[in-house]
Each structure stands twice: as C-alpha cells, then as structure tokens.
Design a protein around this nucleic acid. Structure first.
Lengths: 154, 154
DNA sequence: ATAGATGCAAAAATTTTGCAAGGTG
DNA sequence: CACCTTGCAAAATTTTTGCATCTAT
C-alpha cells in the first residue's frame, strides 16, 4: 500500500495497525484539507467517490481510531454532526480556531494568533496539566456569536 | 407563575415569550446548577421528577430557546450528547472552562483564570469581533487529554 | 379569547454493532 | 496463514416534528 502520509503511517505501524486502502483514502482526504472541518458524511461521500466500495461504518471506525491516536480532533459546532480535522500536532497544520455563528451555523476559521496568545496558552496548559495531573494533548477554542450576515438580517 | 430567575423572566417577557410552568422548572434546574453541564436527558429526568407531566420534546424545545437567547450555552464533549449550562452572561456564574478526558469522558471544571488571561481573552474577542464583523456572545474553551486515572491505567 | 406552548407518539438523523467475507503483514 | 479490517444491514441513540390540546396573557 502506498503511504500518502508517512507520519501517520509510521504511527500506525508502530501501534500494530494495518495500513489499508480504505484508511489511506480517509487519511489522504484529511491530510489534504487540514483547514477544513468535515462531517463524517462529507468524508464518507469524498471517500466513496474515490473508492465506491467504502462503507459508512468504516469511515466512523477510522475517524474514531484517528481521534483516539490524537491524529485528528473531533469537534462539534452545535448542528448535531461531529466534525473532524487534523490536530496541530500534525506537520504543516497551522494553529487555528473557530468563530461559530449560532444563527446560521457558519464557521469562520481564525488563524492569527499573536505570540502573546500562544505563550499564554502554553503556560495555561502547563499549569492545568500539573494542577489536575492531566496530560493535555489538544485544545478546542470556539467563539460563538452572530455573523455579519445574520446581524444585518436579525 | 412564580419567577424563580427574574433576570431570565424579564428577558422572556421582553421578547414576548410566555413564562410557563415547564419553562420555569427547566430554568430553575439550570439556574441552581450553574457549574454543571447537564445533558438533555439529565435535565428531562430532573424536570420529570418535579413535574411528571413534562415531556422530552419540550425539554429540547426549551433548551433550544434558551440557547438561542444566549442564556445557556450548548456544548459537546465528544460522547454524542449535547450539554447545556448557564452562560457567563448570567449573574453569579463564574467564568469556567473544561478539561475533557478523551479516554473515559470525564470532565473537570477549571475556574482559575488569571487577570492576564481574562484581559487577553477580552482583547482577542474584541479584535476578532472587528476583523470578522462578528458579534461575539460567548466562547467555549476545552482542553482535551488524558486524566490522571486513565494515564495510570493506559 | 387567542396565540403561543405543551405532550405524546412517530419520524428523522446520526452513530454504533454483529457477523461473514476480505485483505494485510 | 492468522488475524485485523471491512462492508452491509440492522440496531441503538439522540434530537426533531406534527398535531390536537392546553394555558398564559
């Protein structure tokens, strides 16, 4: 099997997991779209277009697996569907967070973190980690509100 | 109808909504537990114990309504159930965030924000608000990782 | 009185599971 | 070849909807 994302494949091999065609299709979709936040259905449809044999259940199982390994992050913007995207631990994945419109569900990505913010976040993580004996792997930051469009209408 | 949370009731009246018994039961549960993050089912069970006539659908409808009004915040910790808690905009609700264990689902509340953190957060919100013309009402901050217990076992 | 709100039950939507068959190491 | 992984279909879970009835204003 061709290894499209060597970093992920190495981790899978190290954990005794098999590098299958279906998994590679899904990993490829996620790797090529590090700034997107796809739902399971969207990933299924894209995977299905590449290989029509792929089933919904396997997409869910693979997403769970990758989330468990810390390769992707599962999140939820309030519309009942889980979303998945590469974690910041991945190469070439810019640190980014989300602005979520509670009116229309629109999600804006927000990447411009200042050094001050990054440092403070790292400090907070370190403090929390020690205080609660919690091994922090990732964080989710969402700002919720009303987007430009909905603000005009509403 | 007795008004258990005058602040919320005033807002409801202002928006032409009716202050019903069912709504007050639900608002009371949420008001008395500002630091908890109940699922819809948990709220339904508690409401049902107070007034067995209350139905599941109304619980969902009321939670949606309150979330839409910005009185409660809907969030998701990765177990497929939405959670609801009073927003910081409410009186007497301490600013707090969550540490979520991705192994066992345990959620630890984290309230100790320094002034530095609060100021920076306010600054970031203001900047984002202007840059994206987004009226920010709230934020969700979650740190994801492995809790003390799961760390020992795993 | 009347428009909004409720409760029930049925439906929708998303996610999980069982199991025989297939693919990877 | 052994055993992990898959696909399908069925099941489980969570959330939403339709509609007659009730109730707050």
């Amino acid at each position: 099997m061709r290894h499209k994302n060597p970093w992920v494949c190495r981790r899978m091999v190290k954990e005794g997991l098999r590098i299958t065609q279906t998994r590679m299709v899904i990993i490829d979709i996620l790797t090529r779209n590090p700034e997107k936040h796809f739902s399971a259905e969207e990933i299924f449809l894209m995977a299905h277009r590449i290989n029509p044999g792929i089933g919904f259940a396997t997409v869910y199982r693979t997403l769970d697996l990758l989330a468990q390994m810390g390769i992707i992050q599962k999140m939820e913007f309030g519309d009942g569907k889980a979303r998945y995207e590469m974690t910041e631990a991945m190469e070439n994945v810019p640190h980014h967070h989300h602005l979520v419109c509670t009116e229309c569900g629109k999600v804006i990505d927000y990447t411009e973190f200042t050094d001050e913010e990054k440092e403070l976040l790292a400090k907070v993580e370190k403090e929390l980690s020690e205080k609660y004996k919690f091994k922090i792997k990732n964080h989710i930051i969402q700002f919720c509100g009303i987007c430009n469009n909905c603000g005009k209408r509403g």
